[in-house]
Structures are given as structure tokens and as C-alpha cells.
Simulated scan of single mutants.
Amino acid sequence: MSDLNILIVEGNIREDSEFFIKAAGASAADNLKNLILKIEPSAITEIINPGNDDETTNALKDMSKYNGIVFTGGAMRINDMTDVIKKHINFASNCFTQKKKILAICWGLQVCSTAAGGKVNPGKNGAHIGIASDVIINNEGEKHFIYKDKKKIFTSPAFNFDEVSELPENAILLSSDKVNNVMGVSFRAGNSEIIGLQYHPDYEYFQMLKLIEGRKERLFVNKNFLNEEEYESHISYIKSQNELLDFNDRTCEVRNWLNYLRN
């Protein structure tokens, strides 16, 4: 196969992208693009935003040129079901009519799961605020290519308030943690194969710390933290995990997926 051609689907509206750029140094799509090019320097990437009808129309016309599609994370919440969110879900549905390999991260997983008939709701057991601790790969996950060479129990950057509460039909659960049952999942929708991750192999903890700092007021309003001491303790925990972060283990799902595109 020649150089991989990958479509990256931005998960944020412009206002949220500006916040991500200020806090994390890049939009969600650019951050993912940077990681892909670090792993696969010869890859060709194209970024679109489903909120822009012209971009999605053109992408769907040229869908055959893409070896794979990545749906990135983002700050929207499915159950708000705005017109823009509907466009994200509709674009995913249109992608499913093609024979495509799709990697769906965080918000991307929630979009693709909804488009495939699953359901998304606020997390019953709380939220991941910058980190997901002790994610456990189950027996199905150990057999799946996405977790090749991954530690069976791992901690990862993560940031989500919602979870996939009902999986699409015939989905295979790959990993879970105490906060979200659905942390890694594989399913088919239409002609496409989707691998979904409810955490961020594409982000580093220092970026998560910046995102937390930028959302601090909202996190207190939403009672994710009850007091300053609890907040500072969580920040200290993430910093301690940052010292243990290993690039190859953190990013291996993206690397495995890129290798899979070559098959």
C-alpha cells in the first residue's frame, strides 16, 4: 500500500476549538494529526468539521481515497442534540455506508455509537477529569488487534462526562474501568468497522491539566470537586501519573490502528 490517506473529523465547534488551542496547544483534530504524523510521517491527513456542509459533502464524494477515518474528541454532549450535533451523527451514518475502518475517540465514540443505534447518557459513576485509572482489558480485548502490546491494566488521559450507556447491536466490549463500563469497544455499522475508545491515547497529561485549569470554575459548579483541597489532590495525582507516562504504551492503540489500515 502507498502512503496512508486518513480523514480526521474534528469534534469541536469553533468556540470550543479555540479553547482547546489555547489550553492544549492544538485543536482536537490537529492534536490527533500531530500524533499520526509522529507515528507515520508519510501519512496524508485531511481535516474536516461536520458542522460545515461543504466539507462533509466533498469528503463523502471522495470517500474512496481514504484508508481510514478518525473521529476525534470534543466538548459537546450528545443529549443536547443541537443542529450541529445532528450533523456529526449524520456524517457518521453516511460514513457507515462506505466500507471504512474507523477509529472513534471519546466524543467520536459517542457520535458513532449513537449513529449505529446505541445510546449515550451522563456517566452513572461520575466523570473522567483528565485521567482514567486502571482501565482493564477483558478477554475479548486481549484478542483484539487494537490492544496488541498494551498493558492489560493501564491508566490514560481521559476527559468525559457522558458514557455509552447502551452499545450498538453486536458490539464487542474490549475494556472497562470503574467509571465507565464502555472504555474500549468494537462494532460494525453498515459496511464499516468501528473501534471506539472512551479515553485519549492522543493527549498527554500536561494538556489535560491545562484543560482542567480552563474548566475549573465549571467543574466546581457541576460539583465534580467539592472543595479546593479535593481539586488540588486530583491535580497532584495526575502529575504523579505524568511521571510514569510511557509514549509507546499511551499511543499503542493509534499505532495498532494505523498498522491495521495497511492490511
Rank of each mutant, 00 (worst) to 15 (best):
S2E: 14
D3S: 12
I8K: 00
E10A: 11
I13G: 12
D16Q: 09
D16C: 10
S17C: 10
F19V: 12
F20A: 08
I21K: 15
I21G: 03
K22P: 01
K22A: 13
K22C: 04
S27Y: 01
A28E: 06
A29R: 00
K38T: 13
P41V: 06
I47N: 01
I47R: 01
G51L: 01
A59L: 08
F71M: 11
F71T: 07
T72G: 13
M76C: 11
R77L: 05
M81Y: 14
V84Y: 11
I85T: 09
N90A: 12
A92G: 01
C95S: 02
Q98Y: 09
L103F: 06
A104E: 02
C106W: 00
W107G: 01
V111D: 02
V111F: 04
S113P: 05
S113K: 04
G118M: 01
K119V: 02
G126V: 06
A127P: 03
I129P: 04
I131D: 09
I131S: 11
S133V: 06
D134T: 06
K143Y: 02
I146D: 08
I146Q: 06
K151L: 14
F154H: 11
T155E: 10
P157C: 09
D162F: 09
V164H: 08
S165P: 07
P168H: 07
P168F: 08
E169V: 03
N170K: 13
S176Q: 13
V179G: 09
N180A: 14
G184T: 04
N191W: 02
E193L: 12
Q198W: 07
Q198I: 06
Y199K: 03
P201F: 08
D202N: 09
D202S: 09
Y203V: 08
Y205V: 00
F206C: 12
M208G: 10
L209C: 09
I212D: 04
G214W: 01
K216C: 07
L219Y: 07
L219V: 11
V221W: 00
K223G: 09
L226E: 15
E229G: 11
E229V: 15
E232A: 13
H234P: 11
S236T: 15
N242V: 02
D246R: 10
D246N: 15
T251K: 00
E253A: 13
L258H: 06
